[in-house]
Design a protein around this nucleic acid. Sequence first.
DNA 1: CGCTTAATATAGCCAC
DNA 2: GTGGCTATATTAAGCG
Lengths: 94, 94, 94, 94
Amino acid sequence: MTDPGIGHNQGPEVAESGVAADELKAFIERIERLEEEKSAIAGDIKEVYGELKGRGFDAPTVRKIVQMRKVAADERAEREAILELYMQALGMGA
Amino acid sequence: MTDPGIGHNQGPEVAESGVAADELKAFIERIERLEEEKSAIAGDIKEVYGELKGRGFDAPTVRKIVQMRKVAADERAEREAILELYMQALGMGA
Amino acid sequence: MTDPGIGHNQGPEVAESGVAADELKAFIERIERLEEEKSAIAGDIKEVYGELKGRGFDAPTVRKIVQMRKVAADERAEREAILELYMQALGMGA
Amino acid sequence: MTDPGIGHNQGPEVAESGVAADELKAFIERIERLEEEKSAIAGDIKEVYGELKGRGFDAPTVRKIVQMRKVAADERAEREAILELYMQALGMGA
DNA sequence: CGCTTAATATAGCCAC
DNA sequence: GTGGCTATATTAAGCG
């Protein structure tokens, strides 16, 4: 094995040839391109929240709504059931 | 917390008319559309990691490299921002 | 197991006995006690900033200094060393 | 940002004498000592959550309960403060 | 008080 | 598949 044994596989013949290095570089650039797009979209989302806030809506509440819609309804019901169960056990129940 | 929060602003005239409700719905759908895109890109990134792993590269290490390049880029941007600040302070700024 | 198997563990026999409820309550009280201590210390820190501000120092600047000192320089150097090999392979080496 | 901030007050005669520098250093060390304690307690809290999780409780749900109890306690304290205020206004206060 | 930045909670990923 | 860990999303604090 060419790997001196630091603990992780360092890839195919990185040190010896530039071929694998080029391939690795290509992978990294693809990833960085995608991450850039992802960040841009995250920025867009942030902008939308700013916009709705400017329209008088409460951003945290809207976040909760979005989250709740994303969660499958039955799964949410299950979690609420657990919460209720705990609260009842603690005498905090409604 | 499930409760969106008593006392929070519930938006402009949510209870009275359907107008604000429609506006809110539009905002939410915009957000959900963007989040969907974001998730799709995240999936693409995951695929790339799977691909490079199949080519013999160590995925966690590549993640670290990507992270470091990002940090380096951020630091460079910061230095440029500082430089610009200095130039403005010296009356050389745009 | 008494859990009918909805999908998630709902805790040890919360509904059946008060035993688990007592245990849960004990955990919660431990947490609340610790959070109280934490808040007290946060208050102390705030007081120190108030004090140094009263002595003529700029609080935000001092915060930055504290933050910068918190970042361990050697740790960063170590991480950079680990990945230097890869960066050299990418032609990014110094 | 790495730059502590151009334009900020750097404290009383930092450059001229070492006296203020020593005072500043003392403040910083006090803060760092307190932050260390705070981190230790945060770690303890984390441990408790790990422990209760190991006992079969659902950590996120317990977090929610702790939060809810905190809010309830805050509201109660607020109500008591208001009551006291009224009592003082009525000449019934201590 | 609104904006920006630090602390925290959650979620996804990787190793075991 | 479980548990630790890093990355991200959310929340709270600090500052002007």
